[in-house]
């Protein structure tokens, strides 16, 4: 199950912001197509709108509905829907696949556990570019030239990114020193 938890949206009691890790969905913006469990709630008049943010999903209730009554159902449906990322599509689905969520997710990992791991060994990993599913980073400090750094990239960054981002092709290390 994808970890989520709800937070209120200031000034909008009808909305809830479900915090996810960055980029669990391959787009941002209002979702036009939703997986069946969530689509059902939009169809039966529970939900008015579902909007995808880089590290959250904002759900808006129809007027007259209340979170205290409908919140649990929305949560369960959201969990089911997140298990099927392919079932989601943005309103302007004409555009080509977006690297934004992948970039956000990579940056989050580098700011978080993967970055911490590198720091603890006296090294530093920096995000250079994300293009067409390829994530490019530089290895600096003690990481530069370290054979273990390759393992860190593969195990830490690539494996974790691939779990939520099937779009990911490969993580490469930029040979230039930063």
């Amino acid at each position: 199950m994808i970890p989520i938890h709800p937070q209120p949206v200031a000034g909008h009691p009808e909305q809830l912001r479900w915090i996810t890790s960055a980029g669990v969905l391959p787009f941002t913006g209002v979702a036009a197509t939703l997986p069946a469990p969530l689509a059902a709630l939009r169809h039966d008049g529970t939900l008015a709108q579902v909007r995808v943010e880089p590290a959250a999903i904002v759900t808006t209730l129809h007027p007259g509905r209340q979170w205290s009554r409908d919140g649990a159902r929305v949560r369960t449906a959201l969990h089911a829907a997140l298990a099927d990322p392919a079932g989601w599509a943005p309103a302007d689905s004409a555009g080509k696949p977006d690297d934004g969520p992948l970039r956000d997710a990579a940056q989050e990992l580098l700011d978080g556990p993967v970055g911490d791991l590198a720091h603890s060994h006296g090294g530093h990993i920096e995000l250079v570019d994300v293009r067409d599913g390829t994530v490019t980073v530089t290895l600096a400090g003690a990481c530069h030239g370290c054979p273990a750094a390759r393992t860190t990239l593969r195990r830490g960054l690539e494996d974790q990114l691939r779990r939520s981002h099937p779009r990911l092709r490969v993580v490469t290390a930029d040979p230039r020193r930063s």
Binding site: I2, P3, P6, R75
Partner: peptide, 17 residues
């Protein structure tokens, strides 16, 4: 904003998040 879930799997996901 919404009470945490009771279902063990959903509660784990909530706690993790």
């Amino acid at each position: 904003a919404l009470p945490p879930p009771d279902d063990p799997a959903e509660a784990d996901a909530w706690a993790e998040s």
